[in-house]
Design a protein around this nucleic acid. Structure first.
Lengths: 348, 348
DNA sequence: AGGCCTTGATAAAACGTTTTATTGTACGGT
DNA sequence: ACCGTACAATAAAACGTTTTATCAAGGCCT
């Protein structure tokens, strides 16, 4: 019994009655093959259901139509969208993607990077876990690399990110102008470069607001406890601005549990817009990042590099959309605070 | 100048002063290599930063530690979680994953399947776009394949899915018992097998409720228009049950826009729980699917197959959790309908 | 001492491709 | 009829591995 192996180019050659080299030439569109033979080869390919072995092909030709993608967490809808868009763009150029998730762990990221190397991709697109990405890049792994979304401590990388500072600043200014005089800023980890940029943007933009910042680790209950304490004490903060969607979700739930009404008792805004922020009543003011654009630009930049462009490292900052919704209305006068005045909340 | 190629096993051999075969044996833990030489080899590997070329390895050894994964849409948080969990499990067994998204198109799914074949994976895990999956599987692509989540028309596949019918039925029965006498069931496409199962489950479980079903294609505005019409006409349906999260989102927004209050004006429930359903006030009654468990079981089943288990095709149905929340309270008496009686909605 | 294992290492073949160099073959120009 | 060229097809080498078969060197037994 012939084993159940996938048909090889040899079988195609035999079936078409030509040499192996000719089959290869025919399939790769080399002009030195006569049309009649091309047709014979194609017929044999169809009949056998032959599909090239990419690995063998790459091995010999030294051309890899393959790029690696590393994201911190596929579960995050933003990164999932990033990957999905990227995949589409890459396939449009004939490239395959090997995608791995670091599950928010720098150690796993390093591991995955080493592992992805074994695939000999032509290029890399990485959303790093944190700024220390350069240290985790295996030595000697010198292929075109484009970073996205998160900002590395070390310069010299191509980078496509959003203008975290100005966008977060725009929200802070909005709160300021609406009359709020203090704001509790909540972050997951200030060590994440984006988050730090946002926080700095807020600090730069707030003119009359007193600012306060709390770290709420994603799985760490302590942070939430301290937010709880902060919200129970008098006077309560007039506004809250969460600098990433994870904390936004946690804090928004906390508010509901504590029976604190948005926006009657305080205003609420978030960086990183999520679907649900348009569904609550009122909607949540949020910064929407242009993920798809980011993915497309990351690919087109990598694509340029793969074609041989060896120019200086590029950094591009994309503009975010700031969606003002009912969760940040004009600040009521102090004496009226907490007595009603519901904005007839709505989906915008 | 020596080109910038990744170091090969040959260089390692030269550096360690042994033969290529010995390096291979050492790295693969063959017992015939003396400890002293193993150490020399490891040192050389470290110094050069050598990483095996998986493709070449697989080519020669005919052992692929690689599985393909095809999902309908990575953007869907449920599938993203599925992939993420799967990846973790696979890596635990030393396997890599090549993940592709069909972007909800059967044509793309077929294309991706053909393409993934070029990687010669050892196995396949697929969440098919629709029931006609078998037709799109390239002929001769006979590797262990586990289907997940969606049910194929054709039998003979390993399958890990949830008990769509009973779970949807549980929600229908709940509505029925709460006193609702009719229910508008909303689906994306009845051609999706899961959705059909859910719909059949609803039909089987509803005892006193009059049922009505509307298809709302994900990108198709017509469906929403007909829902709108249905909601404007008198008498308005007493309850709505969306059988997938995409339509749940659309319809929930539509309700807000039409100023129809949940649950004052009607009850609302959904299959496919999403984050935001715990955040609205009141929370949305929903069926939560055990995605992680599904992924783990899919992997462990595939893993078994890869180890050679050639038993009959297995079908496993996982139980879902039904989360009863404030959006489906006891049905008020008809004369009171729409006059207030807000459940002090809360996050559960 | 001679024969036979065992041990540790290696040379060479093989995997499925692509590429390079080679071989015919036909053609047009003298 | 001869040469040079262009064209079509191919044989063989190469890519980086793993595997198989081979080999050399001891050690043990008679």
């Amino acid at each position: 019994m012939s084993r159940n192996h996938a048909p090889s180019i040899r079988m195609v050659a035999a079936r078409a009655g030509v040499s192996v080299a000719t089959v290869s030439n025919a399939l790769n569109g080399k002009p030195t093959v006569s049309p009649a033979i091309v047709e014979r080869v194609n017929a044999a390919v169809r009949e056998l259901g032959y599909v090239v072995d990419i690995a063998a092909s790459r091995l010999r030709s030294r051309k890899a139509l393959l790029a690696g993608v590393v994201v911190p967490d596929l579960t995050n809808p933003m990164f999932a969208t990033f990957v999905s868009t990227l995949e589409h763009a890459a396939r449009g150029d004939g490239y395959d993607l090997v995608v791995v998730s670091a599950r928010n762990s720098a150690a796993e990221e390093a591991d995955r990077l080493a592992n992805i190397r074994a695939w000999r991709p032509a290029g890399l697109i990485v959303i790093p876990c944190d700024g220390a990405f350069a240290e985790r890049l295996p030595t000697g792994f010198a292929i075109p690399t484009v970073l996205a979304d998160r900002i590395p401590d070390q310069a010299g990388f191509d980078l496509i990110a959003v203008d975290n500072g100005p966008s977060a600043g725009a929200v802070a200014r909005h709160l300021d102008e609406q009359g709020y005089r203090d704001c509790l800023v909540i972050v997951s980890k200030l060590s994440i470069t984006n988050v730090r940029e946002r926080w700095e943007g807020v600090q730069a933009a707030a003119r009359h607001m007193k600012l306060d910042v709390v770290e709420v680790g994603i799985d760490d209950p302590d942070g939430l406890v301290s937010v709880h304490k902060r919200l129970s004490s008098k006077p309560r903060p007039q506004s809250i601005f969460c600098l990433d969607h994870g904390t936004a979700l946690l804090v928004y739930r906390l508010l509901a549990e504590m029976n604190i009404s948005v926006p009657n008792d305080l205003a609420f805004a978030s960086f990183d817009e999520m679907e649900w922020m348009r569904l609550t009543s009122p909607g949540v003011t949020a910064v929407r990042q242009p993920v798809e654009v980011m993915a497309e630009q990351a690919w087109s930049l990598l694509s340029r590099r793969l074609k041989g462009d060896a120019g200086d490292a590029v950094t591009r900052r994309l503009k975010c959309a700031v969606e003002i919704r009912g969760s940040t209305p004009r600040c009521p006068e102090p004496q009226q605070r907490g007595t009603g005045q519901t904005e007839m909340g709505g989906v915008t």
